[in-house]
Write a protein that binds this DNA or RNA. Structure first.
Lengths: 243, 243
DNA sequence: TCCGGTTTTCGCCTGCGAGTCGAAAACCTC
DNA sequence: GAGGTTTTCGACTCGCAGGCGAAAACCGGA
């Protein structure tokens, strides 16, 4: 229904003279990645740009929103198409970036998202895509470095006041595994004792009944747990000044 | 630099065939409003629509983003121009709405914001604009009722784990006034004792030295306080599982 | 000036949940 | 069976929110 009145040199405008913008769906996909004989580390998925602007720099997976989809659907579509990510355990909106000049070639608006993968998910990465550890990030294109920082902040905050832990872990796990995953995600040591007590008190943790075989070094076998619910729920945002 | 290739019947697209969208800057402006001889109440600013779609229904203040401004600057501009709000004590981004069909006349994307005014701010409302109490909202246009709900949720959550209280109150106030404002904002009774102790422990509260004259019914005069800082700062988002 | 009524302020106590520590349990290899 | 390793559980401490009652500071009226 919209007709075009813009001149080739100016911004695109509709019949009423209102400016229109290209809208990018953008995602910082985080995963606790296990490396044999090392502590697991928190990483983010990025692609190396082939074209200007910022050719050669790393950028978060993104793509334009189509007319018949919501931004969230667009994020999922582009993640599947460009980096082969289909098994997100969590996806939420982070922020919308709109500073004029953030894309030197066009006036674009982008909505950034936080995506999470369980540590067991294996992604077949295409060429020019790679995982980068959070504490050793390369230079990134556009405003994407800020997006990664805020994605990690959001995930860390929600790990403490929601049951977001389910998105880091697979269906079943031992407390030792979960402790290591939390430690990698939060960036500091975590006590398995305290973690188990906190999650149990909140009713997020259930024992499956099974036990996990001990490692080669021996030791008591760990009981296998699962998260009671796989949807995000807030524990108590009104920690203070409650009724 | 973008040229127009769209046909009059299809969506607007640039030279590369990428769809472009009208982007709306949207704000839910909340204020604790004082009515003489009544408890103060939390209200939201809305305008009654004159044109279709949703003519006659109430809608949050909004307007299209211009090419040379960020979304946040656009929100401030439209709030000034359409409802005369210039003294926001706080403004933050809430969420971006993009469901196809959310605007039956056009494919638009809107970024919703949370705005706060101190209870002393008096706004000269134009015709067709009014304050609506949160617990007695009229039917709203588009997806704006959901925006109001999430704006209130966000504010209530941040009142407990940030110093957002500074945005509700004027520069100076007594604990009794602040208690009433918190009670209206949170929707439940608040103890002045506990409120003062919590805010003091966090270093958010300072005594100015002055005292407020007692009311007509007498009583001990209240000491005058101010917030130590007027920028948002998080108290402790990592309440649990800290290092 | 004294007294009841009102509002604010302060100190003490309680209770919940996070964090720490150490001992016991359960497994390995030698 | 002994020694080493890992997991699990209980007991304790501590910080902070929340509740209660007494004391402080003001009013108006007798």
């Amino acid at each position: 229904m919209t007709t075009c009145k813009s001149t080739p040199s100016g911004p695109l405008r509709d019949a009423a003279g209102v400016a229109k913008y290209r809208h990018e769906a953008l995602a910082a996909v985080l995963q606790v990645r296990l490396v044999p004989d090392e502590q697991p580390r928190l990483c983010v998925l990025a692609r190396q740009r082939r074209r200007d602007p910022y050719a050669g720099l790393w950028a978060l997976p993104s793509g334009p929103v189509e007319v018949d989809e919501s931004i969230e659907a667009s994020v999922r579509r582009h993640l599947t198409d460009t980096v082969g990510v289909t098994a997100l355990s969590h996806l939420e909106q982070l922020e919308t970036l709109s500073t004029p000049g953030r894309d030197p070639f066009d006036r674009t608006i982008a909505t950034a998202h936080l995506g999470l993968l369980p540590w067991t998910a294996e992604v077949d990465l295409p060429e020019h895509a790679a995982w980068h550890c959070i504490d050793d990030l390369p230079a990134m294109a556009f405003d994407h470095d800020g997006v990664v920082v805020r994605a990690v902040e959001r995930m860390r905050a929600k790990l403490s006041y929601t049951n977001l832990g389910f998105a880091l872990a697979p269906a079943e796990f031992t407390m030792a595994q979960l402790r290591d995953a939390y430690a990698a995600a939060l960036g500091h040591e975590v006590s398995a004792t305290n973690l188990q007590r906190v999650l149990k008190r909140r009713g997020q943790l259930e024992a499956t009944g099974g036990v996990h075989a001990p490692g080669s070094a021996g030791g008591r076998p760990g009981t296998v747990f699962r998260f009671a619910r796989a949807e995000l729920e807030v524990t108590d945002p009104f920690a203070t000044l409650r009724p």
